[in-house]
Structure formats: structure tokens, C-alpha cells
């Protein structure tokens, strides 16, 4: 099942992209591997070439650049808390990273990998045998969505825990590709299509995650799941208010992409929450029912606003 033809270890981003072009038909970048390898075992990831980027030193730095903090994509989730500026100004990001998986996985999983975490669905994250027996769903080249009982689009849920917090703090990402590097807002890479949830080109690599400094962020993060560790999210919410009064609410786990509403301190909070709930497309592909997760969005957001003193 796991016959790899190539396992390559480039030492720079340029080299990685070059190798990727050479193996363009069937390759996959590998960082922490906590997502890719599991998907490989289940037959959801079938590339013949793994490009291990963990040796690329330039992706492992956290640095301040003017009004921005740059977090290297290969920083491990467990290592975020060791950085002074992060623990001082972005404590909620550290809390969110700490809510991912279990201690052992956090020592391997990277922040870049977490924002690119593959969407999940109870009918997709199954063994090859299981998916064949049930009848392949849309996300694995079938013709119908099983979770919704026959819809023609895929609603696999977006499960990153760090991305909602990052987006709520107006994070940007620096992407390296064949045609050089560019900086885009993090939310712009998510398409909302469960089958292809990100619009990055296949050879693209995230170099840095860039957070604005000096905006006086106050953030509140919450996560819904049956157990207090290990589980993927059933609903993640992050609310951030900056010192200019801008409110950004993000919900994950309730749509193929993060659901985002931007408002202002003077806006009616209930209206903003209502708008966000309306934006989500929740289906029964989780341990919790659709209705319950929908109801919890406003419960969580209201609690967050209480914490933030709004």
C-alpha cells in the first residue's frame, strides 16, 4: 500500500519548488506529516513522491519585521509558546495551537501544516475498503455527497484550529512558488469547495505567516469537541477586537472554509452573530448533529464577547 518511489529532502525553498516541478504529476510536500501520512494509510493520498521540507532552515524562524511578526511555516505547534512576543501578544494563538490533537502530535505538527490541514468528513476519512463499500463520495471521485444524502457539492469541514485565530487577527501568508513570492491574506486561500478547499497551486509553499503587531488585539478562542484532547474540531470560533474597535469573527468546522464576519464595536453583536450563522453550511458529517453545532455557534460567540467585555 505504501510503496514510495521518491523521498526527497531539499534544503531551500527554491530547491523544493524545483523538485516539485520535476515530479509535478504525483508529489506531496511533507512537513510534520501528521495529516499526510494518515491520509496515505487510508488511501486518500496516493502520490509517488514525498518532498520532505523539514530541513529547510529559513522556514523555522520567528522574526519581527517592522510592524509585523513573521512566523516560519515549519514552527512546531508545541514550540509557539516558547516565543516571547507570541506568548505576550498572541496568547490566544498559543491556546488554539494547544487545542490541536495531543502533546506528541504537537511536537511534530507545524503551524503551516495546520492552516493547510485537509478538510474532513465522516464519510471521507475512512479506509479504502470502507469508502468502496459505501460508494465513493464526491471528495474521492464519486458522484454524490453521502453526508447530505445526494447533493452535488462537497461540504467536508474545515478543521484547522489555528487558522480561525490567525484570520481573526488579520494574518497574511507569504507564499513561494515558481513565479516568486507573494503575500496574501490568509482567508483568501480558502475556496469553500470541499473537494479542493484551497486555491494554492500545487507547487506553492507557505514560507511565513505574518501577524500585525501593535494593534492591541484582544482575542477569544473556543472549540467544541467530545473529548478534551485528540479530537478534531466540531466547531471552532475566534473573535478578535483591535484597538480601533474592529471586530473580526471567524468560525471553523462548520463549512468547507472558515466563515468570517467583520464588524465594528458599535455594531449590534446579535446581528453580526446572526449573519455569521447564516453564512455557514453545516451538514451531518460530524459526531455532533447539524442543529447542535449551528446552535453552539451563537453560544460560543456570545461567550467570547462576554470574555472580551463587549
Amino acid at each position: 500500500m505504501n510503496i514510495e518511489k521518491f523521498y526527497l529532502k531539499p534544503e531551500s525553498v527554491e530547491e523544493a519548488v524545483k523538485i516539485a516541478i520535476q515530479h509535478i504529476d504525483s508529489f506531496r510536500y511533507l512537513a510534520g506529516g501528521t495529516d499526510v501520512i494518515v491520509n496515505k494509510y487510508q488511501g486518500n493520498e496516493e502520490s509517488n513522491c514525498l518532498i520532505d521540507i523539514t530541513e529547510i532552515e529559513e522556514l523555522k524562524k520567528i522574526s519581527v519585521d517592522g510592524d509585523y511578526l513573521k512566523i516560519g511555516a515549519l514552527i512546531k505547534l508545541d514550540d509557539l509558546k516558547k516565543h516571547e512576543i507570541l506568548s505576550k501578544y498572541f496568547s490566544e494563538l498559543i491556546i488554539a495551537a494547544h487545542e490541536v490533537a495531543s502533546p506528541m502530535l504537537r511536537k511534530t505538527a507545524t503551524i503551516g501544516g495546520n492552516v493547510l490541514c485537509e478538510n474532513r468528513c465522516s464519510f471521507y476519512n475512512q479506509s479504502e475498503w470502507w469508502r468502496e463499500a459505501v460508494g465513493y463520495c464526491l471528495k474521492c471521485e464519486g458522484v454524490l455527497c453521502i453526508a447530505t444524502g445526494g447533493k452535488k457539492s462537497c461540504f467536508s469541514k474545515f478543521v484547522s484550529d489555528t487558522a480561525p485565530v490567525l484570520i481573526s487577527m488579520d494574518a497574511q501568508i507569504e507564499i513561494s512558488d515558481i513565479d516568486g513570492t507573494k503575500i496574501v491574506p490568509l482567508e483568501s486561500i480558502y475556496t469553500g469547495n470541499g473537494i479542493a478547499p484551497r486555491n494554492l497551486s500545487r507547487t506553492a509553499l507557505i514560507k511565513n505567516i505574518i501577524l500585525p503587531l501593535n494593534r492591541g488585539f484582544k482575542c477569544s478562542f473556543q472549540k467544541l469537541r467530545p473529548r478534551e484532547a485528540v479530537d478534531f474540531t466540531s466547531l471552532t470560533t475566534a473573535v478578535t477586537i483591535d484597538n480601533a474597535g474592529k471586530i473580526k469573527m471567524v468560525a471553523g468546522g462548520v463549512d468547507p472554509k472558515p466563515s468570517i464576519i467583520v464588524g465594528n464595536r458599535n455594531d449590534d453583536i446579535n446581528e453580526l452573530i446572526k449573519k455569521l450563522v447564516k453564512q455557514t453550511r453545516i451538514v451531518d458529517n460530524d459526531v455532533y448533529s447539524r442543529e447542535y453545532r449551528k446552535e453552539m455557534i451563537s453560544v460560543f460567540l456570545n461567550r467570547s464577547f462576554k470574555v472580551l467585555g463587549k
Partner: peptide, 21 residues
């Protein structure tokens, strides 16, 4: 179950309490 197939057929989806629980 879905059509007679166990949906939570692994220890990620079959929720045994962790030490934190």
C-alpha cells in the same frame, strides 16, 4: 453505523476518554 458499516471504526472517532477527560 451507515448502511451496516461502522462509521467510527478507529480510536480517533471512537471516543475513549483521554487522561484529560
Amino acid at each position: 453505523y451507515y448502511n451496516g458499516l461502522l462509521v467510527n471504526n478507529n480510536f480517533l472517532d471512537y471516543k475513549i476518554p483521554t487522561t484529560l477527560d
